[in-house]
Design a protein around this nucleic acid. Sequence first.
DNA 1: GACTAATCGAGACGGTACGTCGCGTCTTACA
DNA 2: TGTAAGACGCGACGTACCGTCTCGATTAGTC
Lengths: 199, 199, 199, 199
Amino acid sequence: MEKDAERRPHTGRRRNEAARRAILDVAVDQLGRSGGGPVTVDTIAAAAGVGRQTIYRWWPSKGAMLLEALAERAAAEVPAPATGTLAGDLAAFVRATFRAAGPDGTRAALRATMAEAQRDPAARALMEEFVARRRRALRDVLVAARDEIGPDADLDLAVDQVFGVLWYRCLVGSAPLDDPVADRLAAGLVRQLRGAADG
Amino acid sequence: MEKDAERRPHTGRRRNEAARRAILDVAVDQLGRSGGGPVTVDTIAAAAGVGRQTIYRWWPSKGAMLLEALAERAAAEVPAPATGTLAGDLAAFVRATFRAAGPDGTRAALRATMAEAQRDPAARALMEEFVARRRRALRDVLVAARDEIGPDADLDLAVDQVFGVLWYRCLVGSAPLDDPVADRLAAGLVRQLRGAADG
Amino acid sequence: MEKDAERRPHTGRRRNEAARRAILDVAVDQLGRSGGGPVTVDTIAAAAGVGRQTIYRWWPSKGAMLLEALAERAAAEVPAPATGTLAGDLAAFVRATFRAAGPDGTRAALRATMAEAQRDPAARALMEEFVARRRRALRDVLVAARDEIGPDADLDLAVDQVFGVLWYRCLVGSAPLDDPVADRLAAGLVRQLRGAADG
Amino acid sequence: MEKDAERRPHTGRRRNEAARRAILDVAVDQLGRSGGGPVTVDTIAAAAGVGRQTIYRWWPSKGAMLLEALAERAAAEVPAPATGTLAGDLAAFVRATFRAAGPDGTRAALRATMAEAQRDPAARALMEEFVARRRRALRDVLVAARDEIGPDADLDLAVDQVFGVLWYRCLVGSAPLDDPVADRLAAGLVRQLRGAADG
DNA sequence: GACTAATCGAGACGGTACGTCGCGTCTTACA
DNA sequence: TGTAAGACGCGACGTACCGTCTCGATTAGTC
């Protein structure tokens, strides 16, 4: 990945899209590889064969860049919503979401990015937005099956239970985020949401 | 708080407990007050009337010290378990837990500490331990009401849903962690756990 | 001197000569002003309107930087050698040398720098070089008048008597380093050097 | 040397002379051995099997203690004055003085101590006194042979030429301080001092 | 023979300076 | 003009030493 920089030509006065790609790729790569250690702008720029200024030209801060790198990665793995029943759609969504956070590389990147978002306001804003987008996707799944859900059900809470478990297990401990867990969680939430109707 | 240092006597060759207290108190105080901004060892040491070295003598890093400060604070607010039914005990626990993370001061401290734990391995280890202690407390509540719970229920997953929602709402967004939310979450989990029996 | 920093522009990827000048000037200034007290890198950097790292980027240690500052100052006051007799040239050189160490500012700087050179190997090497340069200058004066000097004369010893008296009086006590002393020393050495011929 | 401390008994409410000796011996030893590196109070105390406070109880500062250690060492090697002629007495004194500074151990100690005296006022005062004592000894040698010396001779300057060469060669460079040099220096000064009469 | 007083080894403490690391800005030289 | 390179101001970090303080043990004189 580092060697590619030598062959990438300048593009003059237009923004060099290849450089942007290299930066984001290297960023995710290093975030994953670092295992909790610090990822510096210097390292990323060097590995991407890019000047540090090129990073600051396009992102307001290190955290913002990292977050965009992460968001791209996550967006690429967005599961196409679903087809039919609440139980099936929800399970599919949770499975896909958990899987996307599965590889140790991505998980480490998630951890580092969340940490960054706690310090850097720009990163924080992007994290809010990123998270909101994911929440909306899940909420849509629930809303689509509104007839299976009790009227008093707290959809936001259910959404947060999914992402809460996801982030919690990413950030601390080493509990699994695999398909069985996803299925149990989805099943539990279905019961919870249904029940709220006749509660 | 800063002025007390002048009156705090040395304790000779024994560790000065008053200094330890001052450091931890100031740490929590500044974590809360900072609102996400950086809390420096220098500031803490100065406010505690302590040399920087005194901090590094007893903690391997800044993060470890912050984590201990937080753990002490949280432990102090441990809700006494409960009395009787699963629904009642669980709701009480979740309410108390959410309340402990409620004041903006503590919430900011939680955020900063979790971020620190993602970088500093020593802090990470302490965070694992801290989190494990809290998880065990909640698990005990569930186990105590085992007869109300289906045999296939995933207790760990239930526990993680509680703390997941807690941390998720602390770290991103500004969704509330108040009593109604706690009650709804507890009720939902009771339904999940019961349902696993007849599911 | 401190305010200039605000107007000093960056020089890009080339070394900023203005910053170097500011550092060295402030260093000599503070060495002289301090009167033996400690001169810190922090203070120098602040007064020069420079980051601490900029000092460490170009000098291996504080001592090395101080030594270079001193060497520049001393080199600027190099006495132009002379013209004619041994007695006249030598007296002129010693006078000029003593004068250069005369102002209390410079004398304090000499003391501090010599002290630094005893601890910091990098500073020590620079001090050796600085001292060697001065010794060579004086030796040239003697060699130029070789016909007045006995063949057995120990020129190095004569040189060391001059600089020995200089440093000795700088470092300890408060004996003067004025023109009369310089003249007496020069005259005495002339007698020593001549005498070696007929000794 | 380090192990002796275990066998050294307390002396109750009287000062422990053995501890004092151990401190001074270790100090000189480490000064010599360090070769310019830093000698810390901690190291000395540990090697002497002594608490740091025991050092500060008896000396006002590190420098003062080092200087006393050095002074003791030097005083022990004071040459017995002399016998008769200026040339003989002076040569004997210079030889003995140079010899005392000869061993690399002592020379390193001299260097470190002089450096310390430039920073620590207490050490400086002791250094002044130490130096004054040695100067007086040499001056006495000259005064004893006053009839061989011209009336206008600057005795203080002659004395400073001896100690100047000594210190200069100790502090910088590696020029020798052996008997031939001592003899040449003594001879030169005799000529200088005599000459002042008929100059 | 107990009591008091002072010293001793040990080591924690409040400070100050050090030298390193990383961030984000700025300038140069090149393409 | 956009870019790689890299110096710069800033400021936090963790370390090293200094000189002070308190402890508990030990011993020498005093009552």
